[in-house]
Design a protein around this nucleic acid. Structure first.
Lengths: 213, 213
DNA sequence: GTTAGAGTGGAGTATCCGTTCCGCTTAGGT
DNA sequence: ACCTAAGCGGAACGGATACTCCACTCTAAC
């Protein structure tokens, strides 16, 4: 269930290496936090998270400094995971890479339902690392005729944003997301009806990604 | 800006008619609440709302009882507005009714960005009034060849849910929603690529709509 | 085995915010 | 003009929760 894998090496806030027991507690705290956020939403309280991890509140604050920093950490881990998916699929070089990526995004987001409110805003550094990868997947798909030229990178971004509304509503929704992707992808194929509204501007996307809270 | 119109006649909590000054304050409170929620999100505080409306906190509580009740009221007004749109478009009887409805939904939701978190859950009565209307718009569209038979009412529901993720991110996003609808509608046309995943079940949709908070 | 200092737990603190209460004000009927 | 009940404002209250602090514990280097 807990999709770990691409987690950074456990270090204290100042960057020094953690003692084995401390590293263990940190790992348990991260897992507990994901679970608690998924169940209670973003205002799950710190005390519950610590309790679920089997540690005291003091330990939580020694490891993460603030609740906000924990959420940032979780978001960054998630974005790193997505970046990894994209890179793997770029390496494969198939025209279906983009849609496979979107399907993996949906799955990963479903496992982190609780923090979606913070996913696409205030993480410039990670976002700007992901964007060119998506652009490349899109370019490949377009050059192989899987997606039509009219579709832009920002269309794909908006499609990823749109998953939040589906995922946050219920936990039976991972499937609903895949169906939603079926429809959106069908709309992006060559030969589908032309789009009548302009694509979102980069300026607007940037403004969205910069927003805090 | 403030799209009023279909607001219920101003009454006190017990249903008796309001004094003129009180009715005025209620209207100002509702407008202030929408604005405040749009700017600060769902945890805009009551004191700010009252201040923005130019009344005391006591007045707020006399009018609405609790903050939660206010949000419910706003959500119900919004759902009523959507129901009105649907009925008007059904009366017109065009195959394009469904897409016009979806476009109006996007616009209405954009003006109520702040309360989207509470829109599609915990309002069984209003939701169950809207659902058959959407089903009828869909049936008309399908019978006139505007949308293919494969598409279900729940697909349309999920599409409406998906707008939240786009709208909550930024205020430049009303346009982004229209573009997203362009793509999804293109994917729902006859002749578009077949869908590979099953549509969401009624049971799952119901479970989502029943969930509180 | 000793020991330094990293790590721990949880009571205590500060703050924020929803809600209540009550003495004063005012609309609107007679 | 008068009266009364509906309406008003905002200080005060209470509960929730993020975060601090420090006496104690335990890892791991020597």
């Amino acid at each position: 269930m807990a999709t770990l894998g691409s987690v950074a090496a456990p270090t204290a806030l100042d960057g020094t290496r953690l003692r084995r027991d401390a590293a263990d507690n940190q790992r348990r705290l991260l897992e507990a936090a994901v679970a608690e956020f998924n169940e209670q939403g973003m205002d799950a309280c710190v005390e519950q998270i610590a309790q679920r991890a089997g540690v005291g509140i003091g330990t939580f604050y020694r490891r993460f400094g603030t609740k906000d920093a924990l959420v940032d950490r979780l978001v960054e881990d998630l974005l790193t995971e997505l970046t990894g998916s994209a890179q793997r699929l770029i390496a494969a070089g198939e025209g279906a890479g983009l849609e496979l990526f979107l399907r993996e995004v949906a799955t990963a987001l479903a496992h982190h339902r609780g923090i979606l409110a913070r996913l696409w805003c205030g993480h410039q550094e990670h976002s700007s690392r992901l964007r060119p990868l998506v652009a490349e997947l899109l370019a490949t798909a377009q050059s192989q005729g899987a997606i039509r030229a009219e579709v832009t990178g920002n269309d794909v971004s908006v499609l990823m944003w749109s998953l939040r509304g589906i995922l946050e509503l219920t936990d039976a929704s991972a499937l609903a997301c895949q169906r939603h992707l079926d429809i959106a992808l069908a709309g992006m194929r060559p030969g589908a009806e032309p789009l009548t509204h302009p694509a979102m501007s980069d300026r607007a996307r940037l403004k969205a990604e910069q927003r805090r809270r």
